[in-house]
């Protein structure tokens, strides 16, 4: 069929545009500013902050947490939420550790550990799309189930055996050209998520589902598939995080990852994601994770009471969202 143009196009989109920081740097701009300010202040007041040792330490602390946050972001973009990531992380890590203790080859143990995360993610997705459970409820249930399973299979004891294989421990503790492996993996995950969200059809569908699932369905978007996929990816990244944490600590800790889900959500929100869906970016989630890491790290360096840091991060979340609300209203006013 020929092009469906039946009359001369008339360019109508020529009106003036208000250029804002957000328009240039995207929605993570607020987060970037906060991050730069925090880094700047710490560099000034602490001699240790900018040392290689501290930075790679910071990178190791933030990396796993950043990976989880990116997975959480995908779910949040569809206006969902995944509360199970912390428990799934613990289960994947413990399963991997147990397999390694049992003498299973490293690649297989890693594969099974990650697969556990994917399967639990798929179950979350099915509960949301097939049983129509609210994501909050479905993943709250999974939070308890996965944590319970890991406590049962480990008998609530650290899985270490006579020490995990050295090759496995190197994954999270090694470096390439002085850059911690964990940082490379986290950067890779963030870049991959950024690519998927901005350059692929699937990525656009994720935003469409978060914007309005019924409209998306009527525009031919496979809403169920997209929804199940984001929970599976979140599970996959939680599984990966669990494997990496086990590698870093050289042991499977059944209580690992407690409260990670809330930190991951906080990172997304600080990075500009909206819990109502369709707003946020992979870079923003990574930035949010970095901000929280930098604050914790700086607090340690300056010997600030960790309890005050919790207050600071709480305030930051509220300020970030309040600022975003204010920005949205300002944009609406300027038309």
């Amino acid at each position: 069929m020929p092009k469906l143009l039946w009359r001369e196009p008339v360019g109508t989109a020529t009106g003036p545009r208000v250029v804002t920081l957000g328009a240039v740097a995207g929605r993570e701009s607020g987060g970037l500013v906060v991050l730069l300010v925090a880094v700047g202040i710490l560099a000034l007041v602490s001699n240790e902050f900018l040392t290689g040792g501290n930075l790679s330490n910071l990178a190791r602390q933030v990396a796993i947490f950043g990976i989880i946050a990116v997975g959480e972001l995908l779910v949040i973009l569809t206006a969902g939420i995944d509360l199970s990531v912390g428990s799934v992380l613990a289960l994947s890590g413990a399963v991997t550790a147990q397999l390694l203790v049992a003498g299973v080859p490293v690649p297989l143990a890693i594969g099974v550990g990650i697969a556990v995360g994917v399967v639990l993610g798929l179950v979350n997705g099915m509960l949301v799309t097939r049983l129509k459970l609210p994501p909050f409820i479905a993943t709250l249930g999974m939070l308890g189930i996965a944590r319970g399973i890991v406590l049962v299979i480990t008998d609530a004891k650290t899985v270490q055996g006579s020490g995990l294989p050295q090759g496995f421990q190197t994954i999270a503790n090694g470096t390439v050209l002085g850059v911690p492996n964990l940082l490379i993996i986290a950067a890779g995950v963030t870049a991959a998520a950024w690519f998927v969200l901005t350059r692929t059809v699937f990525g656009r569908y994720v935003y469409a589902v978060g914007s309005n699932p019924e409209s998306a369905r009527l525009a031919g978007v496979p809403v169920r598939t997209v929804t199940v996929s984001v929970y599976a990816i979140s599970g996959l990244l939680a599984g990966l995080g669990g494997v990496l944490l086990t590698s870093r600590l050289g042991a499977g800790i059944p209580t690992a990852g407690t409260g990670f889900e809330l930190n991951a959500i906080a990172a997304c929100v600080i990075g500009g994601a909206s819990l109502f869906g369709a707003k946020g970016s992979a870079l923003g989630a990574a930035t949010g994770a970095l901000i929280m890491g930098v604050l914790n790290n700086g607090g340690n360096l300056l010997a600030i009471n960790a309890f005050y840091l919790q207050i600071a991060i709480g305030v930051l979340i509220i300020v970030a969202v309040a600022f975003d609300q204010w920005n949205t209203r300002a944009a609406a006013r300027s038309g």
Partner: peptide, 9 residues
Amino acid sequence: KELGLLPEL
């Protein structure tokens, strides 16, 4: 609004 537009996009 409910069955068509993707408002954030």
